[in-house]
Design a binder for these strands. Structure first.
Length: 191
DNA sequence: AGCGGGATTTTCT
DNA sequence: GAAAATCCCGCTT
């Protein structure tokens, strides 16, 4: 029997980042529910100088030190939001950044939120994904087991379907292999 | 297809 | 005061 419960999220970030590939996010907006499949992730934990939690708990990173299964949303570059899932044991300060996802079903709301863009441009980057799904700081700390944003675990992918690389956009810890994506997925932000 | 710069504001030093 | 887990546009090859 395959384990698809949230207790999986309490494992180390490197493992959870890979385990989340292929899992679903359900976003409710008004009457509509949009489902996307997670296609690209990065892992961060407190021992990592590139992580927001590296210097300890601050007002901004407080939710990162909370229980696994909550959202950690941060604002960056003066205009973008990025979305993480808090992982690891309570108080650990680990999270997985959601960098890309594949929309399943109707994409009209996503396209509207993305100012008319379509196809892979809807969700092939962390800030694009947040814009498409209308995710901002008001959802930081939200528990992903309830609406309006739920995580639906799915069976683990085969290891051979996953590509591992260095992370994107960092100035510290650039060499660490902590980015993971579904190898043949079109929505991956960069090959 | 690839490179370079500008946008814009929160967060922490 | 500087940097930032990014994106988009315009220019060059």
């Amino acid at each position: 029997m395959t384990d698809t419960t949230f207790s999986i999220l309490e494992q180390p970030a490197d493992y959870v980042a890979q385990r989340l590939l292929g899992c679903y996010l359900e976003r409710s907006i008004g009457d509509e529910t949009i489902v996307v499949k997670i296609a690209e992730t990065e892992s961060y934990d407190q021992a990592d100088a590139a992580s927001h939690s590296f210097k300890g708990r601050t007002p901004r990173t407080d939710v990162m030190f909370g229980p696994a299964g909550n959202l950690y949303i941060y604002f960056t570059y003066g205009m973008h939001y990025c979305c993480n899932i808090v992982v690891g044991k309570d108080g650990e300060g680990a999270a997985v950044l959601l960098r890309a996802a594949e929309p399943l079903g109707d994409t009209s709301i996503l396209s509207l939120n993305r100012k008319g863009r379509d196809g892979i441009e809807l969700t092939n980057g962390p800030a694009k994904l947040c814009q498409a799904l209308q995710i901002d700081k008001t959802l930081s700390g939200h528990d992903l087991s309830s609406p309006p944003l739920r995580l639906r675990m799915q069976p683990a992918l085969d290891a051979c379907a996953i590509t591992t690389t260095t992370r994107i956009g960092l100035t510290k810890e650039k060499d660490r292999l902590r980015r993971f994506y579904i190898t043949d997925n079109a929505y991956v932000s960069k090959k």
